[in-house]
Design a protein around this nucleic acid. Structure first.
Lengths: 114, 114
DNA sequence: ATGATTGTGTTCAATCAATGAACACATGTG
DNA sequence: CACATGTGTTCATTGATTGAACACAATCAT
């Protein structure tokens, strides 16, 4: 896939340091190299990142994955969207926690009375 | 699988209404019937729930999935554990949101300056 | 009565994201 | 030169999840 979360994290990390290898990205993101590779290709195809010397270079060793102007724009958009989702999650979680607190109390009560 | 989340939700819903069908459970939990069936069997095998007339009954139409005493105990334990996890998630989310807020601001700034 | 419809639980082949070992290549090292 | 290390890339395998299909029971309509 290429979820918003993945997209956001990749762009954030590459914006901070475009010279991260796919394995470093994988480690920092907590996903596999295969998935990182897939995401990078997807983002490159969308023109969101540009790998310096992608595919036909004499120096195949390492790439720098640079955000294109479109990429910077996209990063802002995705980040904002992601924030929105997280805020919603936060609110939902808050409610769920309240519910859980009540559950814990009633369960504890049930536990006592035989 | 039989995650804590699944376990908690099933026990909560069945505690509220043991007469829920597997399809109703699936709908309320947002998962497939197959998974519900799997979870119920797992919980039954653990002795956490007991299906009235499970497997060898004249009336095969519908079961009531009742929490056993062990089930009630388990529900309390799982709920507490689940609450703990959710609180941790909540804290993590809070930090992530802070981070995102900063990101949004810097991105917006970058957007302006050419 | 009997056929049709609805509602059970159950099964299991198919799906699909995700993994990570394996590969080809390039560079650095001894 | 050989060897180790570090790239990106590939792809068979894994494993959870799905949901259509099935057998059975009860109810409804004719």
């Amino acid at each position: 896939m290429l979820t918003d979360e993945c997209r956001y994290k990749v762009l954030k990390l590459l914006d901070e340091d475009p010279r991260l290898s796919q394995r470093e990205l994988a480690r920092k993101m907590g996903i596999s190299v295969g998935k990182v590779n897939y995401c990078l290709k997807a983002l490159a195809q969308k023109g969101i990142i540009k790998a310096s010397n992608f595919k036909n270079s004499a120096n195949k060793q390492a790439y720098a994955y640079l955000l294109t102007p479109k990429g910077i724009e996209d990063k802002a958009r995705v980040t904002a969207r992601f924030l929105k989702v997280k805020l919603a999650e936060h609110a939902a979680l808050q409610q769920e926690i309240e519910q859980l607190r009540r559950e814990v109390h009633t369960c504890a009560a049930e536990e006592v009375e035989p």
